[in-house]
Amino acid sequence: MLVINTCKIASRLAIRSLQLRSLNASRTFSTGLALKQKDVVNVTFVRANGDKIKASGKVGDSLLDVVVNNSVDLDGFGACEGTLTCSTCHLIFKTNDYEKLPDKPGDEELDMLDLAYELTDTSRLGCQITLSKDMDGLEVHVPSTINDARAA
């Protein structure tokens, strides 16, 4: 439900993320009121250094929406805003989860993934993944860009 940044953050960052958290909490809460609990899908983003970021969206949101709406701290994520012209929302799925995804990637998505760093057989673009209720609890890995790898 909340953006929870784990470990290794300086205190001022913690304060900032607390502010962010309350901001998100109120935002999620306001939509949450209108939504039935069953429409909420919890997702965990796992950074290359192992940090886990929990966030939530509603059924029908894309994983890019989840990152944007929760202000998940992933630098440069979603540069083209979901228009399939970049690969900055590259996410890596566990094999099981990947195989359960209802839609297979189309040519255009694969074309963009081909330009991504650390491409795997279970890579997808977050903007192309639509949340369904059975994805609740999903964990996806965020590839380490040069930046993340060095920060880790």
Binding site: A79, C86, S87, Y117, T145, I146, N147, R150
Partner: peptide, 15 residues
């Protein structure tokens, strides 16, 4: 490189 390349590179230099 594409814009992703420039982005990663610029992030790294800023770091």
């Amino acid at each position: 490189g594409v814009i992703l390349t420039t982005m990663s590179g610029a992030f790294a230099v800023a770091k």
